[in-house]
Design a protein around this nucleic acid. Structure first.
Lengths: 148, 148
DNA sequence: AAATACCTTCCAGCCGACTAGAAGGTTTGT
DNA sequence: ACAAACCTTCTAGTCGGCTGGAAGGTATTT
């Protein structure tokens, strides 16, 4: 059963660039399966786990959360016809990404406007709190004291 | 000193769309100044705070963190020439946003490829774990068992 | 006088992805 | 023989931006 050729956690950490802490954490939340154990209780990893970690990293880099990744991997581990689920998950995530891109573009535009506006100000005005409109995107005059 | 015409917190909440909890939280972290108090100890807000909240919301919508906003407002409250600093902050944040947009486009492309790939697969193959390549972005074959 | 709708403070928890440290067991090297 | 470098489990903390609840004070209405 326990074939002692399996990597120990430190070795896996070295090969994947994760820390041992992170590996155990991934195991806790289920994105990495519970590994076998050596006779002494140490975790024993099959080389294929390296690929699995690679997948996790790729998926993470694509913006999937560990929870989403966990769902995909779980389904896959069950040998289910994962593709349908996965495609749906991916598509839903793609939508999120598209929304995020749009939002970021809005943000970018806003920032650019703010910067242009700020730069156009006479520096002297900056010392006058009643005139500093640097950031005021729309209606803000940055006036006054807050409270009395 | 305490002029009782000031808004109470609930009124400010109504006018700004923040909750009273959030307003107190903003006070705690310093993006809103400590307000005056009514005779009974209730917070008493000057109307200008509404604008300040508006500024905070705009800045937040631009992706600035409350900490960054706090820095700007603090400087401004001190009568500093905030504009230069603010512009620098905004520009640095703009760079971040641009990077994020690029990253997200990469992600989007990756996701689209993954989806296309997944859809192109013969559904039957999905039942074969050794063939299900749905998600494998680059090098992943999604093969095998994890560990023994 | 009581109900209600405010207000006050403080403490606790949520999300996600870790990271740190304590307290111990094991293995390797000299 | 003993230190160092590994491994184990467990608990708890970090960041940011809130949100919730408890336990109490106050103001208004009935």
């Amino acid at each position: 059963m326990v074939y002692d050729r399996g990597m120990k956690i430190g070795e896996l950490a070295n090969k994947t660039g994760l820390t041992t802490k992170t590996i155990r954490y991934y195991e806790d939340i289920g994105v990495l399966p519970e590994p076998g154990r050596h006779a002494n209780g140490y975790r024993s990893y099959h080389p294929s786990v390296i690929d699995r970690v690679g997948f996790i990293k790729d998926a993470q880099a694509s913006g999937l959360s560990l929870i989403e990744i966990q769902v995909i991997l779980e389904l896959r581990d069950e040998g289910e016809s994962t593709c349908g689920h996965t495609v749906r998950l991916l598509e839903s995530h793609l939508e999120d990404v598209q929304t995020q891109i749009i939002d970021l573009h809005r943000t970018k535009t806003l920032l650019e406007k703010m910067i242009v506006k700020a730069k156009a100000l006479d520096p002297a005005d900056c010392l006058n709190p009643n005139r500093c409109q640097t950031i005021s995107a729309t209606h803000l005059q940055m006036e006054g004291t807050g409270t009395e």
